[in-house]
Design a protein around this nucleic acid. Sequence first.
DNA 1: CTGTGGTGATAAACCGGTATAGCTCCTGCA
DNA 2: TGCAGGAGCTATACCGGTTTATCACCACAG
Lengths: 342, 342
Amino acid sequence: MARPTIADIADRAGVSKGAVSFALNGRPGVSEATRARILAIAEQMAWRPHSAARALGASRVDSVGLVIARPARTLGVEPFFAHLVSGLQSGLSAHGISLQLLIVEDTEAEIEVYRRWHSEHRVDGVILVDLTVRDPRIDELKALELPAVVIGGRGGKGALPSVWASDRDAMLAVVEYLAALGHRRIAHVAGTPNFQHTQRRMRALRDAAPRLGLLEAPSLTTDFSDAEGAATTRKLLSQAVRPTAIVYDSDVMAVAGLGVAMEMGVPVPGELSIVAFDDSILTQLMHPALTALSRDTFEFGRQAAEVLLEVIAAPGTTINRRTADPVLTVRESTAPPSCPEH
Amino acid sequence: MARPTIADIADRAGVSKGAVSFALNGRPGVSEATRARILAIAEQMAWRPHSAARALGASRVDSVGLVIARPARTLGVEPFFAHLVSGLQSGLSAHGISLQLLIVEDTEAEIEVYRRWHSEHRVDGVILVDLTVRDPRIDELKALELPAVVIGGRGGKGALPSVWASDRDAMLAVVEYLAALGHRRIAHVAGTPNFQHTQRRMRALRDAAPRLGLLEAPSLTTDFSDAEGAATTRKLLSQAVRPTAIVYDSDVMAVAGLGVAMEMGVPVPGELSIVAFDDSILTQLMHPALTALSRDTFEFGRQAAEVLLEVIAAPGTTINRRTADPVLTVRESTAPPSCPEH
DNA sequence: CTGTGGTGATAAACCGGTATAGCTCCTGCA
DNA sequence: TGCAGGAGCTATACCGGTTTATCACCACAG
């Protein structure tokens, strides 16, 4: 017989459907003896729950969603999402929860997806990435009462649960390392200005500059694309007084920047040090290999999954879990400046 | 009232649940007048079908699955999957079908996922990628009677439906271009030997070599990693008589190979031409930018989605749809050899 | 005037689980 | 001896749709 149901099991065991349901879900209502017998029969018949039936009865679907709003073009180069998804799945599959992944073009479409998922009961909760400054998704999700956890942004008051690492500390680690090498002119090629983490990194740099005695520490925002990363680098290196080090908010932009430096005849790390704010195989393929800030994105995903499951189990709870700080992996693209300013 | 059901609609319209179901699904059994009335009410009440309820009643879940079996480490740099997923979703969402994505470590785990998905009724069908020579997944899926479509491999007799592009023609395009430039010693740094597309590319090169007057045209297999790509390149460039051109089966390996060439002081494209068998932003970030074979992966995904939906609608039909051939994008990494052999 | 067939609807079964009310024992305590 | 209470189980309603059997009604042919 293909695909036995609990009714089949009940028949075989000589008990009622209800008893089988109790036994299979490990809840009281049956004796240990019958429970064992039922479990044995279920095992032997290779019974598996019908996800839709369970969802209908228990009004939960054992599935959570992740929507990534990015133009498909810029996607995929960054291993960030692949690792995040792997981590999420690792955290979810332990509880038999599956992951719905959707890639859309913009935030508007993303919100539309949340509405649809909610009204069709397709997910029990969602994961949010790329939080912006006044993010419209927050209010929407609250209105829908759809459990959610934010990745990468510590929510403020009344905010959604989150899993985050300190962008401030990360930026400090980078810039303190560069300052210790002797750099006094450090530029920051940042990402989109309306992303919260971009803001935090810019602020961290600005705050630390005086203490570290930096002569110059500008942050220039971009759209995260390699094109703007390259253009901004070109602008920086064309100045009369060049920065001796540049920090990039993504590995892709760092690689693009390295290309520009080589093209302009600026030796790396001889006259310019480069640090990428994200690590990946990309940074290691370069010559010179790039010094980069490595995050454990997989672990990030795993923890986000855990937090989301907790929030689903107990709606309303607000957890803000801080994860391990990123570590700076020093490679070949950083060195003391050729002519220290002091 | 939150989330109206068809019973609510039936009440309001003064008809039975059945009538509402008929009206909403566009099937006969109601007059055009009542159908219009019911649709209007449903619209006004913002009714959306409950996915689980529908799945239970209609025994289809409006969801298909994609399992990617790759170590998470190598994933993500290649835009291939991101674009493929986008394309799949584009083709699916037009029909209201959602996509389940799962990343696992190996084929064994992948098959396990298929079994689970099938027994839990979580998907109506699946997409297969990275077909190997005697692929165990084929038999498994046939046994499960789970509709499936293979991406990238034209299935032989009795095989699964597929969407494919000609690896042979692609390889021919590359090697004919190089031969036309004057190259007579062309090496091929191939991927995993048990992948069908690796085999086809190797065969295509071997077959074409005599016709094009190539003196040498070895194919060396790797595991697709940047490490093996680099090592193989090093071996090739250390020979007494070096190849004047190398074709790489992936963009990541091509980039790694370029790094080795630069390190060994072999100018590109001066003394060595490089072609990548896959295009991405990676190839464009390099200096020199890499000549590469570009596939429209998004379109690939879209077509795969279409074919899968057809197969689900009419199980047993075998479609083998050929998509547009990849095109060679010439950039800066290819040129005539410095000292033509003839 | 009667049978016949098709249209437009209804009521009820069904999908495969979960949740709950209630029944039957058995035990323990007054 | 009687009765409360709990353990262990059954029967059944229920979740929100789909599908089938059935029926009322009307037009039309014989």
